[in-house]
């Protein structure tokens, strides 16, 4: 198997041509998702209304392209209406943990010392308690609402961000340009904002996107386990748990939201990859 492996090299041009396609596809998917999240409730104002007479219609039924669930709710309408609660909470999670991560990561990386030590131990602690386990136990026991679950996830995600930003800062602070700024006696805040932050931007952006994808997955996982989203709310994770019970009479009830979660999370992950690749190309020049 390995006989010829080392000698094959890909043509460098192929990748460059393909990348915009990936990038554009991702952006289109995310654009549609954003539109559905913002205006979904206007398109289908009665998506969550129960209609027992039309329960469990199979896909392709008249007026219901993907059929209905056991409560007679149209799957298409429910999925569109569920976009907001599935995608906005995670956006807040990713944004919040990025802000916390940037702030504490800059401080820890720039001054190091004790803060640093404590933060590392905190990450160890959270590593030993997986997100879903922590979410199920804490949010489950306390009966946390949607927004409290969001806050919980910010707390759980932030230590990773702090560590990533901190590692990035530590990599930068030993570079001559930062040391020169120190020798010029510029204020630490100026060095952090004007010098470090701009150079950490690719790192932050990548990390934000990866966190966003992870948060979408984590939050729908919690919804799937009945945590964080109230019964009757339009939400993809919630749709999955409801739809699983009628998997064999209307598979679309659970497969549709499953595919939606995968597609959106994929788009976010691929966007991160594509932007990274562009960065690398720019750096190579």
């Amino acid at each position: 198997m390995t006989a010829d492996l080392l000698t094959t090299v890909a043509a460098p041009g192929v990748r460059a041509r393909r990348r915009p396609v990936t990038l554009v596809t991702c952006l289109v998917i995310l654009g549609l998702a954003l539109f559905a999240a913002l205006f979904g409730h206007l398109l289908y104002p009665s998506a969550t209304q129960v209609n027992v007479l039309q329960a469990q219609l199979p896909p392709g039924s008249p007026g219901h392209l993907l059929g209905t669930d056991q409560l007679g709710r149209d799957i298409v309408a429910l999925s569109v209406a569920g976009t907001a609660s599935t995608l906005i909470g995670p956006l807040v999670v990713a944004g919040g943990s990025m802000l916390l991560g940037t702030f504490f990561g800059l401080l820890a990386g720039f001054w190091q010392g004790k803060t640093d030590f404590l933060l590392s131990r905190l990450t160890d602690l959270l590593l030993a308690l997986p997100v879903v386990l922590l979410g199920v136990v804490v949010a489950g026991i306390f009966g946390a609402s949607y927004w409290w679950t969001t806050v919980l996830l910010i707390v759980v995600f932030a230590p990773y961000d702090i560590r990533i930003v901190r590692a990035g800062v530590i990599e930068q602070v030993t570079k001559p340009y930062v040391e020169s700024a120190r020798l010029l006696r510029l204020s630490p805040w100026r060095i952090m904002l004007r010098h470090l932050l701009v150079n950490l931007w690719p790192l932050e952006r990548t990390n934000f996107l990866l966190n966003y994808a992870n948060a979408i997955i984590a939050m729908s996982a919690l919804s799937f386990l009945g945590v964080g989203v109230q019964q009757g709310t339009a939400n993809w994770g919630r749709q999955l748990i409801d739809g699983e019970q009628i998997l064999f009479s209307n598979p679309a009830a659970s497969i549709a939201p499953a595919v939606l979660i995968i597609v959106v999370a994929c788009a976010v992950n691929l966007l991160a990859d594509a932007l990274n690749a562009d960065d690398r190309k720019a750096a190579g020049r």
Binding site: G135, V156, Y160, R163, I164, A167, A218, A272, R280
Partner: peptide
């Protein structure tokens, strides 16, 4: 994936944080 959160751990080459993962 599903269980939640795997930090990137330097997977994306641009990040390469020394000691995340």
């Amino acid at each position: 994936m599903g269980g939640g959160h795997l930090p990137d751990g330097g997977l994306t080459e641009v990040t390469a944080p020394a000691d995340v993962a």
